[in-house]
Write a protein that binds this DNA or RNA. Structure first.
Length: 267
DNA sequence: ATGGCATGACAATCATGA
């Protein structure tokens, strides 16, 4: 049985629960990273997810942000080393959660949007990613099998943008953001999606406005980065575009990476 | 040049997203 890792910005877990449950029913991925849950921890739908076989770890806040990692009970054991919030970076915004399961370090991040280049939020975005990069530099040493999944809010290359000329230098596509993305790769991580041949105009986010989805006007800003040890085990990576076609969809589609059968290292 | 659409908080608009 292959082992599947997924990431999905749900844009409100409360609103997207029916979609999430239906999706997990047809595609029972083993580990699911969620962003923009927009729920406080006391109202996280723990029971509804337990009912369909998933154990949840979460770090949320009111109205904005919020991240979670769901573990499929039938396929993974106990998790350890739970981290909520970016270590060493004092941040009231709930944007990071990490845990270790099956020898796998799973880091789920909701990167700041940045709003506009040169804005205060842009500076925060770059600082946040810088702090993440520094923390991961240590993490990849300790955990050779590490996966960074989430909404990066960065389109790494022009081929990840429906209209590169229109987006040139804009937020999500600026040189500094792309450099920050490459700095993450420089830690020894690889973009799982680009390990395989993919269709042109493959995106993970489409604006709700202007019929952007049907017009294929999107960006690829949700990613799964893998250490080389994991990349060797990765046999496929795809975007679950079908979920963007549903009624009341999230503006993001999930990304799924498939790993070949995991062999527990000898202890 | 601006807003479009969606969500949540809050009770008519407003902040935020990307």
């Amino acid at each position: 049985m292959p082992f599947c890792l997924a990431t999905w910005n749900v844009n409100s877990l409360k609103v997207r629960m029916p979609h999430l449950l239906a999706w997990l029913n047809t595609r029972p991925v083993d580990i699911v990273c969620l962003q923009e849950t927009k729920v406080t921890d006391d109202s996280f739908p723990v029971q509804s997810l337990a009912d369909v076989g998933y154990r949840a770890h979460f770090a949320g806040q009111k109205t904005y942000n919020g991240v979670a990692i769901l573990l499929r009970e039938a396929s993974v054991g106990t998790s350890t080393e739970l981290v909520c919030g970016l270590p060493g970076y004092d941040d009231p915004q709930a944007r990071l959660i990490a845990l270790t399961v099956e020898g796998l370090r799973v880091v789920c991040g909701y990167f700041p949007n940045g709003q506009a280049v040169a804005s205060e939020k842009y500076a925060y975005k770059l600082a946040w990613i810088g702090a993440l990069t520094n923390w991961l530099r240590e993490q990849v040493q300790v955990h050779p099998q590490l996966a960074l999944l989430g909404d990066f809010n960065i389109a790494p290359e022009d081929r990840d943008v429906h209209d590169p000329a229109q987006w040139a230098g804009q937020i999500l596509c600026s040189d500094q953001e792309r450099a920050a993305f490459r700095a993450l790769l420089a830690l020894g991580l690889v973009d799982a999606f680009r390990l395989f041949e993919q269709a042109e105009r493959s995106f993970t986010w489409w604006d709700y406005r202007e019929f952007a989805f049907r017009r294929k006007m999107g960006l690829r800003i949700d990613h799964i980065l893998l250490t080389s040890a994991l990349a060797k085990r990765c046999t496929a990576c795809s975007i679950e575009v079908e979920l963007r076609k549903l009624e009341r969809p999230s503006d993001h589609a999930p990304v799924v990476a498939v790993l070949e059968e995991f062999t527990r290292p000898a202890t």
